[in-house]
Simulated scan of single mutants.
Amino acid sequence: MKKIAVLAIVSLALMTGCAPEVGSEKWCKAMEAKPKGDWTANEVKDFAKHCIFKTTE
Rank of each mutant, 00 (worst) to 15 (best):
M1G: 14
M1D: 12
M1I: 06
M1P: 08
M1C: 09
K2H: 10
K3G: 03
K3R: 11
K3C: 11
K3P: 00
I4V: 14
I4L: 15
A5M: 13
A5V: 12
A5T: 08
A5Q: 13
A5G: 00
A5Y: 08
A5L: 15
V6Y: 02
V6I: 15
V6H: 01
L7R: 05
L7I: 03
A8L: 14
A8I: 05
A8W: 00
A8N: 04
I9H: 01
I9L: 15
I9W: 02
I9V: 15
V10Q: 00
V10K: 00
V10S: 00
V10W: 00
S11Y: 05
S11P: 00
L12S: 11
L12Q: 01
A13G: 15
L14T: 05
L14N: 06
L14R: 01
L14Q: 02
L14S: 10
L14M: 14
M15H: 06
T16K: 04
T16M: 15
T16S: 13
T16E: 07
G17C: 08
C18T: 09
C18F: 08
C18G: 02
C18K: 07
C18V: 09
C18N: 01
C18R: 07
C18I: 09
A19G: 07
P20F: 04
P20Q: 06
E21N: 05
E21P: 02
V22F: 02
V22E: 13
V22N: 08
S24V: 04
S24N: 07
S24G: 11
E25Y: 04
E25N: 12
E25Q: 14
K26D: 14
W27I: 11
C28I: 04
C28G: 10
K29M: 03
K29R: 09
K29G: 01
K29I: 00
A30N: 10
A30R: 09
M31N: 03
M31Y: 02
M31S: 06
M31C: 08
E32V: 03
E32A: 08
A33I: 02
K34I: 03
K34A: 07
P35L: 07
P35D: 08
K36G: 01
K36S: 12
K36F: 10
G37H: 10
G37K: 13
G37V: 03
D38R: 04
W39M: 12
W39N: 08
T40V: 02
A41M: 09
A41I: 09
A41S: 14
A41V: 10
N42S: 11
N42F: 04
E43S: 05
E43Q: 15
E43V: 01
E43F: 02
V44I: 07
V44L: 13
V44C: 08
K45I: 05
K45W: 04
D46A: 15
D46M: 11
D46C: 04
D46R: 06
F47V: 02
F47E: 00
A48H: 12
A48T: 14
K49M: 08
K49E: 12
K49R: 13
K49D: 10
C51R: 01
C51A: 01
I52S: 11
I52D: 12
K54E: 13
K54P: 00
T56S: 13
T56F: 11
T56H: 10
E57T: 06
E57K: 15
E57G: 14
E57R: 13
E57N: 13
